[in-house]
Amino acid sequence: MPTVIDKALDYIGAMNTSVPAPQPMDESTAKGMFKYLKDLGVPASAADVTARGSQEGWNTEFTKKVAGWATKIESADRVVIKNPEYFTAYMREQLRALV
C-alpha cells in the first residue's frame, strides 16, 4: 500500500471507529480525503480500508461504510461532501508530501 494511503488511513483511524457510522464531520473528512487521493492519482480502495479496519479493530459497519465511499470515489460515482472544510489544508499538505 502506498505511504500516502497509509497516512490517510491513519487520519481515519484517529476518528471514533468504534461506532457503526462516522459522525458527519468524520464522514466529510473521509470523503474529502478519498477524493483528494484520487485527484493525486493514488485512489484508496475498499480493500485498503477493509484491511486497515480489520487490523485495527474498527467497528464492522463503520469499516463497510467507509470502504463503500472509497469504492464510489475510486469508480467516479457521485459522492456528496456536505462539509468539505473538515478535510483541512494541513491534511492535504501532509498527503501531497507523500506522493
Rank of each mutant, 00 (worst) to 15 (best):
M1Y: 13
P2D: 15
T3Q: 15
V4H: 12
I5G: 03
K7F: 13
K7P: 00
A8L: 12
L9H: 06
L9D: 07
L9T: 03
L9Y: 07
D10H: 08
D10K: 07
Y11L: 12
Y11H: 03
I12G: 00
A14P: 04
M15Y: 15
N16H: 14
T17P: 02
S18R: 15
P20N: 14
Q23T: 11
P24V: 02
D26C: 02
E27Y: 09
S28W: 05
S28M: 10
S28Y: 04
T29E: 12
A30W: 06
K31P: 02
K31S: 08
K31V: 03
F34H: 12
K35L: 05
K35D: 00
Y36N: 00
K38H: 15
K38Q: 08
D39I: 03
G41C: 13
P43Q: 15
A44W: 06
A44V: 10
A44K: 08
S45V: 10
S45Q: 12
S45I: 12
S45C: 12
D48G: 01
V49M: 11
V49C: 08
T50W: 11
T50L: 15
A51H: 14
S54V: 09
S54F: 15
S54Y: 13
Q55I: 01
E56T: 05
E56W: 11
G57L: 10
W58V: 09
W58K: 13
E61T: 11
E61D: 15
T63I: 04
T63R: 09
T63E: 10
K64M: 05
K64S: 04
K64Q: 09
K65W: 07
V66F: 14
A67I: 03
A67N: 05
A67P: 03
W69K: 00
A70P: 00
T71C: 03
K72Y: 00
I73A: 00
A76W: 05
A76F: 08
D77E: 14
D77K: 03
D77G: 01
D77Y: 07
R78W: 09
V79Y: 00
V79K: 00
V80Q: 01
V80A: 01
I81Q: 01
I81K: 01
I81R: 00
K82Q: 10
N83M: 11
N83I: 02
N83G: 01
N83R: 05
N83L: 07
P84Q: 03
E85W: 05
E85L: 05
Y86W: 13
Y86D: 12
F87S: 10
A89C: 01
A89V: 02
M91A: 09
M91S: 02
R92V: 01
R92Q: 14
E93N: 12
Q94D: 08
L95Q: 06
L95M: 05
R96C: 02
R96K: 11
R96P: 02
A97G: 04
A97S: 11
L98A: 03
L98W: 10
L98E: 06
V99R: 12
V99Q: 09
